[in-house]
């Protein structure tokens, strides 16, 4: 049976904690359901981000509120996890999508767009390509496609 929650909170704190917990867990469940049900990998890579951003945000705010009221002092550890997740999730998913695209192109899968054309040989690329050079190359490529 259910184990009782450790301490009694006033109702004005218990209500938002409960709502935020349910919202966060529901969002995580929805995102994972999308991971289960969607058709292709490139559709599936979007679904879990629902739980990763908003879901974890709701649960972390609930935890912060709960412990702050419980210990009668502001408890802000959870900001660490929130910042960390916000920073790392796009990086990992971009790496993963890039690896998947590479694998699909290598296998000659026609569901993915072809690789971009290589830059023209006339353009000098410095030994260490700075961002301005890269931006100039991108602009040249765009002008070429038009």
């Amino acid at each position: 049976m259910t184990q009782a929650v450790a301490a009694d909170l006033p109702i004005w704190a218990a209500l938002p904690v409960a709502l935020l917990l349910l919202l966060g867990a529901g969002l995580a469940l929805t995102g994972t359901l999308g991971l289960l049900r969607l058709g292709s990998f490139y559709e599936r890579v979007h679904a879990p981000t629902l739980g990763t951003t908003l879901g974890i945000g709701c649960v972390l705010i609930a935890s912060m509120l709960y412990f702050s009221v419980l210990q009668t002092r502001p408890v802000l550890h959870e900001v660490l996890i929130a910042v960390f997740m916000t920073v790392t999730t796009p990086v990992t998913l971009m790496l993963l999508a890039r690896a998947a695209l590479y694998r699909d192109r290598r296998e000659g899968n026609d569901q993915v767009p072809p690789p971009p054309p290589p830059p023209r040989g006339g353009q000098e690329e410095g030994p260490d390509g700075t961002t301005e050079e890269m931006a100039a190359m991108d602009r040249a490529e765009l002008a070429e496609r038009r």
């Binding site: 009694d8 409960a18 709502l19 469940l29």
Partner: peptide, 25 residues
Amino acid sequence: TAAALLLTWSVLLAQLFLGLAMAFA
């Protein structure tokens, strides 16, 4: 109390949701 009851059941429900999500994953 009512607050503890609400919190207990919502934590339980959230844990069920998350367990189901982990099963899907």
